[in-house]
Computed example of a mutant assay.
Amino acid sequence: MTQIDRLPTRITSPESPTVALVTGGNSGIGFDIARQLLDLGVDVWIGARDIDKGRRAAAELGPSVHVVQLDVTDAASIAAAASQIGDLDILVNNAGVNPGGEDITSTDLEQLRIAYEINVFGLIAVTQALLPALRRSQHPRIVNVSSGTASLTWNSGPNPQFEWERVQGGGIAYRSSKTAVNAVTLLMAQTLGDDVRVNALAPGRRQTNLIAGMTGGGDPAEAATGALRLALLPDDGPTGALWSWDGTRVPW
């Protein structure tokens, strides 16, 4: 399958709610994913490292959203959040960081450690903690927010969209960590099989804190719609792939 055309329309009932957790849901793309899930009747938890920022986001989203303190680098925080959430149908691993740095000649190793600690190790740790709950779901879904700039095919081939990055080799900490996310997504899908649909999202360049100080960037809400496609896939939907926000499959 190279295209997901169907937009999600599944509305959950109060008697059997669909429950979702969006890590890093207090801002950026995560905030819009949470908002759009709420609009479809999903019972949404937003995970926030800073609980005060999470509460402010919840106040903006409305009274039906739940907030949980969740630092994806802290095992105790993850365990407490998993216990508080309980049942879960959708996990959106959205929390991420771009620690800065440029190419291999100038990036500090600490920037690489930060990127991998949050973007990769944190994603795996949260998924491991929530897998028991997801396995109890009738329609479990995992969406890992990645990046089109992590596609090795796009970066090594003649793709004008990423030409400057391919030539300069910039952003090695962020981009290589998201390439690792792509690999983790594929291996997750292979491990979990048909029991859990696992996909990665390339949200496109968006005006969020990740590109603070940089020019350009589209509306995060547009990317969030792509996340919903994957979060509410039908049971025969794809698994183990990287998808653009518009539903087009992205090569690894």
Rank of each mutant, 00 (worst) to 15 (best):
I11H: 13
I114L: 14
T225V: 14
R49L: 10
S137I: 08
G193A: 03
P132A: 02
D195G: 09
T225W: 08
T153V: 14
R229N: 10
E117N: 11
V181S: 04
T18S: 10
P203S: 12
A150S: 14
N93C: 08
R6E: 09
L70C: 08
T9P: 00
E110P: 08
V198I: 07
S176Y: 04
T248E: 15
R206S: 14
V68M: 01
I114R: 13
V126G: 00
L70A: 12
V145P: 10
A212G: 04
G148K: 12
D87E: 14
R55Y: 13
D194Q: 13
I124E: 03
P203F: 11
V196E: 04
I85G: 03
S64A: 15
Q84F: 00
D71L: 08
I46Y: 04
A95M: 11
S106F: 09
S83R: 15
S137C: 12
W154L: 15
L186R: 15
S156V: 05
I90P: 04
V181H: 02
N93W: 06
L186H: 13
N26R: 03
L201I: 04
D219C: 02
Q138D: 15
G54Y: 05
N26Y: 10
A189V: 07
V68E: 06
Q190W: 06
S151D: 00
L61R: 01
A227E: 00
L201R: 09
A183E: 10
D71S: 13
V196Y: 07
L70S: 12
V97R: 01
S106R: 14
A150Y: 01
E60F: 02
W45S: 06
L130V: 10
V184T: 01
R136M: 11
G30Y: 10
N93T: 01
G25P: 00
L123S: 12
L152M: 11
I33D: 02
A125W: 09
G28D: 09
A180M: 04
A129R: 08
L123Y: 05
R136P: 03
L201Y: 02
A227I: 08
S13D: 10
R6Q: 10
H139G: 07
V19Q: 09
S83C: 14
L123K: 13
G96I: 10
V65H: 01
T2M: 11
A81L: 06
A227C: 04
P63D: 15
P251H: 01
P99A: 07
A221W: 12
T179R: 13
I104L: 13
E102H: 13
N26I: 02
G28Q: 01
P140Q: 03
I142Y: 07
D246P: 00
T191Y: 00
P234D: 15
S27D: 08
L91T: 07
T208W: 11
R55D: 14
G157H: 12
D195W: 08
A76S: 15
A227H: 03
A95L: 06
P158V: 14
S176D: 05
N155I: 09
Q111V: 05
L131C: 05
G226R: 09
G30C: 12
R35V: 07
P160A: 12
R197K: 15
G62L: 09
V181M: 04
N144R: 12
A81N: 08
D89F: 06
E15H: 13
